[in-house]
Amino acid sequence: MEKYLPYAVLFLRIALALTILAFVADKMGYLTQAGTAPILWGDWDIYTKQLQAILPFIPGNISEKLAIVATLLEIILALMLLFGVKVRWAAIGTGIYALLVAIVAGYGVGINAILHYSLLVISAASFLLACCPIYKFTLHGIKKRSTYHPY
């Protein structure tokens, strides 16, 4: 069974990265129009307004900057996972970020949003990826033509 672990880790990395990039594409309005059933936001304005509604104690100009920082963080973490750069750090960052988003969404919107958008699953999968002992298909593993053991 251990011989399949590198492939499972690769699949988990790609799945997490594509999930995060789908959230970013949704915020930017690339998936489809706002208000369509599987779409959460649909465009940037709706995303920032919803963020302001969830966090009413944060002033509007700071809320806009927070939205930009959060989106940039999502892009960076997703690309790190996708291309196998510092996988452990990217996985820990993704897990913490998804857990924080789940807490904030639970506080602002309710438990339904956390479960509907699988924020806890993303967080748990990220922490599981951080615990994996082998990262074979990473930039380090390809460069060295070996398996990268971070422990």
Rank of each mutant, 00 (worst) to 15 (best):
P6Y: 06
L10E: 01
F11V: 02
R13G: 06
R13C: 02
I14P: 07
L16V: 07
A17P: 03
L18H: 03
L21D: 06
F23R: 01
V24E: 04
A25W: 13
G29Y: 01
Q33D: 15
Q33I: 07
A34N: 08
P38N: 13
L40I: 05
L40P: 06
D43C: 07
W44C: 07
D45C: 03
Y47G: 10
T48K: 09
K49P: 00
A53G: 13
A53H: 13
F57T: 09
F57A: 12
F57E: 12
P59T: 10
N61T: 04
I62D: 02
S63K: 13
S63H: 03
E64L: 07
K65A: 14
K65Y: 13
I68T: 03
I68D: 11
T71C: 12
E74G: 09
A78N: 15
M80K: 02
G84I: 08
G84A: 11
K86I: 06
K86A: 12
A90F: 00
I92V: 15
I92R: 02
G93C: 10
G93N: 10
T94I: 05
T94S: 10
T94R: 00
I96V: 15
I96W: 12
A98C: 00
L99A: 10
L99Y: 14
Y107D: 09
Y107I: 13
Y107M: 13
V109G: 03
I111R: 09
N112Q: 14
L119Q: 10
V121Y: 07
I122Y: 01
A124G: 09
A124K: 01
S126R: 13
L129F: 04
Y135E: 00
Y135P: 02
F137W: 05
L139K: 05
K143P: 04
K143E: 13
K144T: 11
R145G: 11
S146Y: 01
T147L: 09
H149R: 13
P150E: 14
